[in-house]
Computed example of a mutant assay.
Amino acid sequence: MPAYITATGRFLPGDPVPNDEIEDYIGRAGLASAELREMILANSGITSRHYAIDKKQQTVHSNTQMAAAAVREAVARAGLGPDEVEMLAAATTMPDLLGPGHASMIHGELGFAPLEVMTAHGICSSGMMALKNAHLQIVAGEKRNAVVVASEFASRGFKSSRYAHMRTVVEDGTLPMETAFLRYMLSDGAGAAVLSDRPAAAGISLRIDWISLTSYANTEQACMFFGSNSNDCTKTWGDYPDAMAAAEDGAMAPRQKLSLLPHLVEVGIQECEKLVAAGRFDPEQVTWFPVHYSSERMKQLLLGEFTRRGIGTARRESWFSNLTRVGNVGSASIYLILDEMLTENMISEGDTLLCMVPESGRFIISFMHLTAVAAPRS
């Protein structure tokens, strides 16, 4: 039994924030220079993003609330009532609470009738984990429909007040590059999708042909991580005497080991080549390549390597991302990409899509193959 994406939804908090207003929201941490900020932003290609905090660094929308708003829009577009949703799968990097699970909190916010929930925890790939779980439930006949949502509230962790007591700032007045980098890269929002065992009664639905998700943590180091100040992540925030001690040592600051990022391109392309060799898809027959990449620089590296290896995914005109306008919203990004493609009528019946989501966390590569189908003809 196939599963279809029949509707999507999104929630982007507030007005778009241009590059020159970033520090009006998250503030300045240490003596990060304008030159450093401009270099990071130039490589990212991002010109605007959204924040769920205001200029006083106060929360305007919680992670839970953003996710619930995206779900409501998707469910309304699908024509489902609050008593008709059978499953809620949710993904995020940093939920509002350490427990209960993010999906439980979203369910409570929505007030939908009792249903099955699951929470996927991770970084960018967690959104694909949740989607695959819901997909398999429908394929197995366990559920007739499911709603999947991915949401991120990165700005709350990048507020300048969180860096005020870090000894790494106090010692020389600057933030380490691996810490400063992410403050200008990540932003907030939520995206959702409704999955069903049949196409929508009107418009275009996306049949999920397959989802592949592979971890390379057996050979790769942690590249992007939260909750540790050690490269091997052996000492975590919970190992300190208290939360203040962990914060002072910088264990609570998100980090990106930039030297490892180029290797993510190599791993991602290797995984793509494996799928082609296994006959999972023909690159020359794919209409669209919706790709979540963290920066325009990463896109150029991917395209260059695909071209060098003669893989059809190097067709620039078929790649689609809204990174530059929406920002890097982590696990929610692929949902926001598909939502824009569907609502802007970019996809036609018979189109095939190969979605790619590489995660630098400890190197997870995921792909999803979709086929656009029209509503059944009466």
Rank of each mutant, 00 (worst) to 15 (best):
P2W: 06
P2S: 12
R10K: 14
R10Q: 14
P13G: 03
D15F: 03
V17C: 01
D20M: 02
D20F: 02
G30C: 08
G30I: 14
E35H: 10
L36F: 14
E38A: 12
N43H: 13
G45R: 00
S48L: 05
Y51I: 03
I53D: 06
Q57M: 04
Q57I: 02
T59W: 05
V60K: 03
N63L: 13
M66W: 08
M66N: 09
M66S: 15
A69R: 14
V71F: 10
A74T: 04
V75Y: 00
A76N: 12
G81D: 06
G81L: 03
P82T: 09
A90F: 11
P100Q: 09
G108F: 06
G108R: 14
P114C: 11
C124I: 04
S125L: 07
S125I: 00
A130N: 05
K132R: 14
N133Q: 12
N133E: 05
A134H: 01
L136M: 13
I138H: 11
E142R: 12
S151N: 06
S151A: 12
R156H: 11
A164W: 04
M166H: 09
T168H: 11
V169S: 13
V169F: 08
L175H: 03
P176W: 05
E178K: 05
L182I: 14
Y184I: 06
M185V: 15
G189E: 01
G189S: 00
A192K: 14
V194C: 07
V194W: 08
I204M: 12
I204W: 11
L206D: 00
I208W: 01
W210T: 02
S212W: 02
S212E: 02
S215K: 07
N218H: 10
E220G: 00
F226Q: 07
G227Q: 08
N229H: 15
T234Y: 08
M244I: 07
M244R: 05
A245S: 13
A246S: 14
D249Y: 15
D249A: 15
P254L: 09
P262E: 01
V265A: 01
I269G: 02
K274A: 01
Q285C: 09
F289W: 12
V291F: 15
E296H: 11
E296W: 15
M298Y: 13
T307V: 07
G310Y: 07
G310I: 01
A314S: 09
S318L: 11
W319N: 15
L323Q: 08
G327P: 00
V329R: 04
V329I: 13
G330T: 10
A332N: 02
I334Y: 08
L338V: 14
D339G: 09
I347S: 12
I347F: 07
G350N: 08
T352R: 11
L354N: 06
E359C: 06
S360E: 10
F367Q: 06
A372Y: 10
